[in-house]
Amino acid sequence: MGLSSFFKNLFGSTKESVTELAHNAETTFEQAKETAAPYIEKAEAFAEETIEKVKEVSEPIIDQAADYAEKAKDTVSEYADKVAKVANDVVDSVKERTASLNNEVPETISETVVDESEKPIAEVEEIAGDTIDKA
Rank of each mutant, 00 (worst) to 15 (best):
L3H: 15
F6L: 14
F7E: 14
F7Y: 11
K8Y: 12
T14Q: 15
K15F: 06
K15H: 05
T19H: 05
T19F: 05
T19D: 10
E20W: 09
A22M: 07
A22I: 10
A22W: 05
N24Y: 08
A25D: 03
E26T: 14
E26H: 09
E26F: 11
T28C: 04
F29K: 06
E30T: 12
E30M: 08
Q31D: 07
Q31S: 07
A32L: 11
K33P: 00
E34H: 04
E34M: 03
A36C: 04
A36Q: 05
A36E: 05
A37M: 03
A37L: 03
A37D: 02
A37H: 00
Y39M: 15
I40N: 11
E41T: 03
E41A: 13
K42M: 12
K42R: 14
K42H: 12
A43I: 04
E44I: 13
E44P: 01
F46H: 14
F46G: 10
A47S: 11
E48R: 06
E49C: 03
T50M: 03
T50Q: 06
I51F: 04
E52A: 02
E52M: 03
V54D: 01
E56K: 02
V57M: 09
P60K: 01
I61T: 04
I62Q: 08
I62L: 08
I62F: 07
A65R: 08
A66N: 06
D67E: 15
D67N: 14
D67K: 15
Y68I: 13
E70P: 03
K71S: 05
A72C: 07
D74C: 01
D74G: 06
T75Q: 09
S77F: 00
S77H: 02
E78V: 05
E78S: 00
E78L: 06
K82G: 01
K82V: 02
A84E: 05
A87W: 01
A87L: 08
D89K: 12
V90D: 01
D92C: 03
V94R: 06
V94G: 07
V94F: 10
K95L: 13
K95E: 11
K95R: 12
E96L: 09
T98Q: 11
S100K: 14
L101Y: 14
N102Q: 15
E104G: 07
P106Y: 02
P106W: 02
E107Q: 09
T108M: 14
S110V: 14
E111W: 09
V114A: 10
D115Y: 00
S117C: 02
K119N: 07
P120V: 11
I121H: 07
A122V: 10
E123N: 12
V124I: 11
E126S: 08
A128H: 05
A128G: 01
G129V: 10
D130H: 05
T131A: 14
D133S: 07
K134E: 02
A135T: 08
A135D: 02
